[in-house]
């Protein structure tokens, strides 16, 4: 679905930054910044799933929240295209943002803490519609009943409270709530990470169904790479607040062009005991966004690091059509993808 030339972007992110000040002392003197999201440029096309991966602290959650302006960006532009309308989302006042909230939704990681325990399921799903004041109570009732069956629960569940449901069921309720206002763009932040394997598959299927039915676009943030590979059309790899690689899913998994992606690929455990993995070692501990290294943020841990990597910050560039990488050496390196890393033994016992 990605070969079509006439793909329309739904979201363009330009030079997005989110810095948190580090304050010290009584006077709250600012002594530095945690650069959680650092100059991110992204385009997300309509009706696609963009997977975002990276280790904890790389800024993937902050990126998702800043795009929805749940966090205020420090700098940069967020431009949404809803149909023919183009909105400079980052320039809106907080009051104006509210008018567009209905197009944007979020599905949260922890189904146990993201639902209000004192509200019934009905009220949880109805709340966004009530707040919008655009629906009568009858319309709301009708729509809630439709949504709850769409996500695989029953109308009789509507009068219960969240505690009566299992994790998977709660995640379904969260999905129903996020779909109530017929959004166009949904950020799913680790939406299946807290669920059991067998339930995870149910929710992934549900997310796909909802996408087809409502023509949604997802930004799918996750750390489980097998899940990301399954659901995403394109994948974006982040490291220390920056996008280091962005490509179509298969291209990225089989032909990575950034050393960090190669490390990630080699670390994925494969559910096959006859597969041997060639492990690419990763030096040191995860970097700290408060004390960024000079040059390429990955260079202290990179096994290919050269002098230029220590001095100059590599920019994200298109190395082959649709494949972006931020590595000085991308043209010279021959990195291993899944095929080279996961060696399936010929013999079977």
């Amino acid at each position: 679905m990605s070969e079509e030339k006439d793909r329309k972007p739904i979201l363009e992110v330009k030079g997005l930054k989110k810095y948190y000040p580090i304050e010290k002392g009584l006077s709250k003197r600012v002594v530095g910044y945690v650069k959680a999201v650092n100059d991110v440029n992204l385009t997300i096309y309509q009706n696609e799933v963009l997977g975002v991966v990276g280790e904890s602290g790389c800024g993937k959650t902050t990126l998702g929240r800043t795009i929805l302006r749940l966090l205020e960006p420090t700098d940069g532009k967020i431009i949404f295209h809803f149909g023919d309308k183009t909105v400079d989302f980052s320039a809106l006042t907080r009051q104006e943002v509210r008018d567009y909230r209905k197009y944007l939704q979020m599905i949260f990681q922890n189904p146990y803490t993201s639902l209000n325990p004192r509200m019934t399921v009905f009220d949880i799903i109805a709340e966004p519609m009530r707040l919008s004041k655009a629906f009568t109570e009858e319309q709301i009732t009708e729509r809630v009943r439709k949504l709850i069956t769409q996500v695989g629960l029953e109308v009789r569940h509507l009068n219960r409270y969240p505690h009566a449901f299992s994790g998977g069921q709660r995640q379904r309720i969260g999905i129903a709530r996020s779909l109530a206002m017929q959004p166009k763009f949904v950020v799913a932040d680790e939406a299946v990470s807290a669920l059991d394997v067998s339930i995870q598959a149910q929710i992934l299927n549900l997310l796909q169904d909802m996408k087809d039915q409502y023509g949604l676009t997802y930004m799918f943030i996750a750390h489980n790479l097998s899940v990301v590979e399954h659901i995403s059309d394109r994948v974006c790899v982040m490291y220390l607040g920056r996008v280091v690689e962005l490509a179509e899913t298969e291209e990225l998994f089989y032909h990575p062009r950034h050393p960090y992606t190669e490390v990630l690929m080699s670390a994925i455990p494969v559910a096959d005991p006859t597969t041997d993995t060639k492990r690419v070692e990763l030096k040191g501990d995860a970097g700290n966004a408060a004390h960024l290294p000079s040059g390429c943020p990955f260079h202290p841990r990179c096994r290919y690091g050269k002098e230029i990597c220590r001095q100059e910050l590599p920019q994200l560039r298109e190395i082959s059509p649709g494949h972006f990488t931020a590595c000085h050496l991308a043209d010279q390196l021959k990195l291993s993808g899944l095929e080279e890393l996961k060696l399936t033994a010929k013999k079977e016992e």
Binding site: V197, L204, V227, E229, I231, A271
Partner: peptide, 11 residues
Amino acid sequence: LLRSMPVLGHK
């Protein structure tokens, strides 16, 4: 259980 998980390389 084995069927229900996404398998790497079999997108």
